[in-house]
Design a protein around this nucleic acid. Structure first.
Lengths: 238, 238
DNA sequence: GGTTTAAGTAATCATTCGATTACAACATCC
DNA sequence: GGATGTTGTAATCGAATGATTACTTAAACC
């Protein structure tokens, strides 16, 4: 995920310039933007808005700090764009589930759902979206990026965007998936719990604490192994 | 909540010292500690760990920044103590509900519960604890202080304490209130959703957005008016 | 080949912030 | 009433950080 800074690899001959300048590979600005946003998502997700520095983002993206600032103007707009990107990914994931369901492409997946929870469209979509949500944990950046925005409400621009984004998700779940307000509420609540468990890094103590084990089991269900694997991978990546 | 800095109020006579030094009222260190922790809870809840400064805490407590640092050593230990305090308040609130219930002191409150949700001890305690939880929103500092700790998991000391604290709450709900793991999970999930709605300051747009209105209604129920009032009061204090 | 444009960095600046030091004033004890 | 400990502040320091400026160098254009 986080790419490492690369020097321009010479032909084996000595450096072309006497002053060895670590210049990143030159790529079009649009692509660089996307790379920076991806890196920023990881950094902001990990350390929050105030706790992150533009230099950390730059290093994660393999470029220099001034370039990050010049491309996005300010740290705040960088955060807002990363937030938009994360929210977009979440909305898209949900909409893909709904579209696939309505197209009848999920007959296989339907077999594995909890039949006791109901067999109507909203009930089944709720379960399928919960799985899609948990799948996003694997990325780790996406959901924690959103979570960090949710607790940065005191920054006026971020707070406003976070409110709008949260309501967008609620409306999607209610209007497009067809959940009743109370069901939509419960769905969102489960999501916020997952975010919290990831935020406190509970998977890291899964093996050492039986309470953590039980809570994770009963919250993540079939997605737990994937989350545990992702957690270990992230610890290795440091 | 947030006390204002006060100068030593003279007798009406001119200042006793030529150099007007704004000295806070002298009170015992133990009491001062408590005041600082209360102020710190508000500041950290609002802006998070990284986003808060010891000077903001000092100003909120009406004393100087060096005094804050000297009394707690570092910003991190100040945060950790404020976290302990907040968690203690939450645990105590839940335990008081359980004790009162088991002592039969809540016959009046039981009338107002949702009978459809069940009439056993766990079901009733769950509803009563949810009310107690929502009551804590009025303070605003307590729950957001916890929430801020939950997303600061990358700070090793804070993450460890946050994990332990969250598991403490889960165990209380499961073992002392007697909820099944799945019920305890749902209870915590509702709490995390409330935290999130407070974090994004959704009550602030209650009047302007019908979606926000619906979501708040169905999440906070009878506690909504209180939360809306607290939200307005906080905006005035801003 | 020479010019222009796009992609990128080094150097640096002004603030901010946590922490330290040194000092002031009040209370208490003998 | 002087010594002593407690409660507090002013001044300041070093490190970190977001942003700016002034360059460099590679690519594209003609």
């Amino acid at each position: 995920m986080s790419s490492v800074a690369k020097k321009t690899v010479g032909t084996g001959a000595p450096e072309t310039t006497s002053t060895s300048q670590a210049t990143a590979e030159r790529i079009p600005a649009a692509q660089r933007r996307a790379l920076i946003l991806e890196a920023a998502t990881g950094v902001f997700a990990e350390r929050g808005y105030a706790g992150s520095t533009t230099d950390q983002v730059a290093k994660a993206a393999g470029i220099s700090q001034p370039y990050v600032v010049r491309m996005f103007g300010t740290k705040e707009t960088l955060f807002l764009e990363a937030l938009d990107r994360a929210q977009g990914k979440l909305l898209r994931a949900f909409r893909e589930v709904i579209a696939a369901y309505d197209a009848g492409e999920l007959t296989e997946e339907l077999q594995h759902l909890d039949a006791a929870a109901g067999s109507g469209r909203p009930e089944q979509l709720k379960q399928l979206m919960a799985i899609a949500y948990a799948d996003l944990i694997e990325d780790r950046g996406i959901l924690m990026m959103l979570m960090q925005a949710f607790v940065a409400g005191h920054e006026p621009a971020i707070g406003a965007r976070a409110r709008e984004g949260f309501l967008d998700i609620y409306r999607l779940v209610r209007d497009e998936a067809g959940l009743l307000p109370e069901t939509a509420r419960d769905f969102l609540a489960q999501g916020m719990l997952m975010n919290t468990l990831i935020g406190i890094r509970l998977p890291e103590i899964y093996e050492q604490d039986s309470t953590a084990e039980e809570l994770l089991e009963c919250t993540l269900r079939s997605k737990l192994p994937m989350v545990l694997k992702a957690s270990k991978a992230q610890r290795r990546a440091g």
